[in-house]
Design a protein around this nucleic acid. Structure first.
Length: 689
RNA sequence: GGCGAGGUAGCUCAGCUGGUUAGAGCGCAGGAUUCAUAAUCCUGAGGUCGAGAGUUCAAGUCUCUCUCUCGCUACCA
């Protein structure tokens, strides 16, 4: 393939319609694709990006049974919800399809028949568990029993979740069907297998040398090391046959006589969804789909998470090559995983940031999440998302660096030049030239990085232009220069306006909404990528309105988001309290002298509503402590009580009385106070530690 | 158990085919500044590059051993 492909087909992993989308999905397969595609579109390249819901597979039928509903109801629900989540984050597919559509079923069936005809499969009859009550064969996950390794009695047919060992259903002791509770029996079933070992040789040269059918196909060095590594690992181990059909009633029926009750394996059916989606896209847009999948001038790129590598780099290519006539992927820039607040993202533990919830909680602020996820994208290794980091990136980088820069440029221009772009003299100083060079260089740097799937790097370059703009303003001080030299002021502001307009272009893939606002503020339409690099706003052009580009994220918002995560708080009896203070050290704790003390006298402090003057006995002395508890306790209430005293607190004069310590109180939810009282038997002077 | 990918400043991460004093952003300390969303800019402190051994004139960068994390997978590599 040539350096510059004629057209590009981009796919993102079909999300499984069995649960909502979270930021790990977004950062893994959708945002990077969106950035890549927006960039290519901005460059005027021919690019189509397809995706869709993956709606088959055993997990969905299992879930439907559990919820007492149909698989159809499940996939309909999530198909809707996932689309809303994507739309809300401005993830702009050209087409979003679904694998349960008639078109997809028809296409997948035909594809299967084509493969069958070419002899791509082997037919094998095997013994498999059958549920006599439900009259159907049981997928591995439908069987539960006692684990032969650890005796856990709820192990599944494919894995024991307690000891982690992988199992096959016939290893289970006392197997039981999870559908009916009946004891399953062994029956014969026929499955079609894909003998992958036949394909090892060409796969090896395809993956390792980037060669296909004896000629160069792609640059293997452009692939990520963990992707190549994973594939080599599979090849070195020798590829096994893999069943391409399943005994299930939900999925694409195997279009062969006598194969009732059998469907295509979900990993055969799902990637074909990319093709169906492309066909449906073409039909709706009056285009021809075939060049996108068959023309050698097309570049095919799959965006996925690391858990899908083997399917996209080995199994799907085998299917495509066996079928013939279809392109194989030119790159599969799989991302690693996103962790969350120090732990793995987990749907079942509700340890996630749900895309849809973010969109609801932060309406109109998709750019902020896009920015943060792009900044920490797990390109080469697992990454970590924390809400605190989100807050600091939004506040420090988006609001303070970018938002404030645009604001100061616009404000200065309206102050000194009535809101119109001032004419530059054309005489540039050395610093001007340096900045103009950076303007010229940035689009190329950002674009190169994006084309190499180095999105974090690309964003750094784009933001670098803005940072340089801030530096330039601070150093050139137009607010001072304006007092002596209006032309120089015009030159400075003209240049910063050019920086802003250029930044709008190079940031557009990352921050589509903000970029549009920046262009509007500069009084220009949104400009294509290739316009960037030089002067964009002409002298005399009136600037447009500039809203506040980024609101700051508050501590309260951060706390609210963190509180949402994890097991249902009410279920655990948790409550909404002040967040824990920052970690402290043992030494700091040791510095405090806590003692048991007894209140021997108490009186109100004159002229103070809240204060009681207490006389406490510590066992080694008697001292005065002023305590802000008068609203809750009268002097009679407290005399004779044993309390906890912070004894070595620096003395302080409160309302004229010297207080030598502090009595510890628990403040309750209703705003009341309770003494922290030592258990019976503790005597004044006892050290608390 | 096997294989793959990671383990680099307090935090999040860059470091291409081995080459002068290991970088960025944030955070921290000090300073400058006021056009601006108390924003911005400068300077500085801070790392025995997971541990150990080896190859080399030279290793974060190659080899081996160990260890931790994540992923894939299985009595097969």
């Amino acid at each position: 393939m040539s350096e510059q492909p004629k057209r590009t087909l981009v796919t993102s992993a079909l999300p499984y319609a069995n649960g909502p989308i979270h930021i790990g999905h977004i950062a893994g397969a959708y945002l990077p694709a969106d950035l890549y595609v927006r960039y290519l579109r901005a460059r005027g390249r021919d690019v189509v990006w397809v995706c869709g819901s993956d709606e088959h597979g055993a997990a969905i039928t299992l879930r439907a049974r559990k919820e007492g509903t149909t698989p159809r109801a499940i996939v309909d629900r999530y198909h809707e919800e996932m689309q809303e989540a994507f739309t809300g984050l401005d993830i702009a597919f050209d087409h979003y399809d679904r694998t349960s559509s008639k078109e997809h079923h028809a296409f997948a069936q035909q594809f299967f028949l084509d493969l069958l005809e070419k002899g791509a499969f082997t037919e094998e009859t095997r013994q498999q568990f059958f549920d006599p009550v439900e009259q159907q064969f049981l997928a591995d996950r439908y069987i539960q029993g006692t684990c032969p390794k650890c005796d856990h009695d709820k192990a599944y047919g494919d894995q024991c979740e307690k000891c982690g060992s992988a199992l096959s259903p016939d290893e289970l002791i006392n197997p039981v069907s999870t559908l009916s509770g009946a004891t399953p029996e062994m029956r014969e079933t026929t499955l079609w297998y894909l003998p992958m070992d036949r394909h090892e040789d060409w796969l090896r040269s395809y993956l390792e040398q980037g060669e296909l059918d004896g000629s160069a196909h792609h640059d293997p060095k452009a692939w990520k090391s963990h992707v190549i590594g994973q594939c080599k690992s599979w090849l070195d181990g020798g590829l096994q046959s893999r069943a391409m059909t399943r005994d299930l009633d939900w999925g694409v029926p195997v279009p062969v006589e006598g194969a009732e009750g059998k469907v295509l394996y979900v990993w055969l059916d799902a990637p074909l969804g990319y093709i169906t989606a492309t066909k449906n896209w073409a039909e709706r847009n009056g285009a021809d789909w075939e060049p996108y999948w068959k023309d050698a001038d097309t570049q095919l790129v799959h965006f996925i998470g690391k858990d899908n590598i083997v399917f996209h780099c080995i199994i799907f290519p085998i299917l495509l090559k066996e079928r013939g006539g279809y392109l194989l992927p030119h790159n599969v820039p799989a991302n690693e995983f996103m962790n969350l607040e120090g732990d793995k993202i987990s749907t079942s533990r509700n340890w996630a940031v749900w895309a849809k919830e973010y969109v609801d909680d932060f309406p109109g602020r998709s750019d902020e999440m896009r920015y943060v996820l792009a900044s920490i994208m797990p390109e080469q290794k697992d990454a970590e998302f924390t809400w605190e980091d989100f807050q600091s990136r939004v506040n420090n980088e988006l609001a303070d660096v970018l938002g404030n820069f645009v604001n100061r440029v616009v404000v200065l221009t309206s102050k000194y030049f009535g809101g119109k772009v001032p004419a530059a003299s054309g005489e540039w100083t050395e610093t001007d030239v340096a900045l103009r060079d950076l303007i010229a260089a940035t689009p190329g740097q950002v674009g190169d990085a994006i084309e190499k799937f180095r999105f974090r790097d690309a964003l750094q370059h784009a933001m670098g232009l803005v940072r340089a703009g801030n530096k330039y303003l601070t150093e050139e001080e137009p607010w001072k220069v304006v007092k002596q030299d209006e032309q120089r002021t015009a030159d400075i502001l003209n240049l910063t306006l050019q920086v802003t307009a250029n930044a709008a272009i190079v940031l557009a893939p990352f921050l589509p909404r903000t970029s549009a606002r920046m262009a509007e503020a500069m009084g220009t339409a949104e400009l294509p990528w290739d316009a960037a690099g030089g002067d964009l706003v002409p002298a005399g052009q009136p600037l447009g309105a500039l809203p506040i580009l980024f609101e700051k994220v508050t501590d309260e918002q951060v706390e609210a988001q963190r509180a949402k995560m994890g097991p249902d708080a009410e279920a655990l009896g948790l409550r909404d309290v002040e967040p824990e203070k920052p970690q402290t050290t043992f030494d700091d704790f040791q510095a405090m002298d806590l003692r048991v003390a007894e209140v021997v006298a108490a009186e109100k402090v004159k002229g103070a509503d809240k204060l009681l003057q207490l006389t406490v006995r510590t066992g080694y002395d008697e001292r005065t402590v002023v305590s802000g508890i008068a609203e809750h306790f009268s002097p009679e209430d407290v005399v004779g009580r044993k309390v906890t005293l912070l004894a070595n607190l620096a003395p302080r004069k409160i309302r004229g009385v010297v207080s030598q310590g502090m009595v510890l109180m628990a403040s309750t939810e209703d705003g009341g106070l309770r003494f922290v009282t030592p258990e019976e038997g503790a005597e004044p002077g006892d050290i608390i530690r």
